[in-house]
Computed example of a mutant assay.
Amino acid sequence: MGRSHALSGWCAGLAMAPLVGLTSVAQVVPFAAATAGYALLPDLDHPGASASRVLGPITGIVSGAVRAFSGLLYSVTKGPRDEDSTGRHRHASHTLAAALLLGFLTSRLGAAGGWRAVLGVALFGLILAAHVLGDWVLAVVVGAGAWSIAGTWLPGTTAVEVLRGGLDEIGSWIGAAVALGMFVHCLGDSLTRSGCPWLWPLPIRGETWFEIRLPRAFRFRTGGWVERLIIAPLLLTGGVLLLPGALPVLQDFFPAILSTTSVWVAGSQR
């Protein structure tokens, strides 16, 4: 489900950026790229996940630590009706508490470290997203950066200064991208048959790790046809339409195509 998580994070980031005052391409695209990448981060608790393999042994060690901590936390906090489980996968890292905590820490980092810290957080998210979605993510970000520079270039400024300006504007909001991405992952897992205990530690029906999920008729299997043929295409379409300036371009593009087609058809009938 990695691609769906990353695409949903990308869409959520594009939708949220304007709500926090980020409107230029140089601000929105790095913000959304970070959200897409950190939408994969909760799966650090699985050794085979992309987030656990992206940086080789480095993320592998982090994955082992996350699994160990998650198992310990589960054994200490499980309720009387919680299932007999190791508590490693889809537990500690798949909670709203974890998303808010990491979001807060990265927000403070962005505020204290300035554009360099924002760049570091965003780059790691971009690496995660590109590892799952492919190099087109890098092409979009680089293209957006070039577009932004071309549109905001001022005499006496350099390309680096223009990019730094966009990252400075993101600042502490980079934490919102991280938290949103992780929470979107939890919501996505709640659509599947296994569910996700993201309301921990709120006790529900005697369970501290109660799996939030849709009614049985609406659940789908991870990697099944519903995800591949319905959810992923919808997310990909939304990810394009939500790009800054995409709708005006499409509104001009399709009438132009129809007009050209009409002229060609009329000419061929003569």
Rank of each mutant, 00 (worst) to 15 (best):
V76K: 12
P57A: 01
L154M: 11
L154F: 03
I127F: 03
S85A: 15
G71P: 03
E161W: 01
W173D: 15
F104A: 04
I149Y: 05
S50V: 15
A117P: 13
S50T: 15
A68C: 11
V160S: 11
A65L: 14
A159Q: 08
V160M: 00
I149C: 10
G71E: 11
A49H: 14
G166R: 05
L101Q: 03
V54Y: 06
L163F: 01
G37L: 02
V54W: 06
G151M: 05
T95Q: 09
S75M: 03
A97D: 04
G64H: 09
L100E: 10
A92Y: 13
L40S: 12
V54M: 11
A98E: 06
L101R: 00
G60S: 01
T86E: 15
W115D: 05
F124N: 05
R108V: 08
G120I: 00
T106Q: 14
D43K: 11
G151K: 08
R116P: 11
L41T: 14
H89L: 13
P47F: 03
I174W: 10
V141M: 03
D82S: 11
S85L: 12
A150W: 07
L41R: 12
P42V: 00
S63E: 04
W136E: 12
S85V: 11
A34H: 04
S85G: 09
F104R: 02
I58D: 02
W136N: 13
W147P: 02
R53P: 08
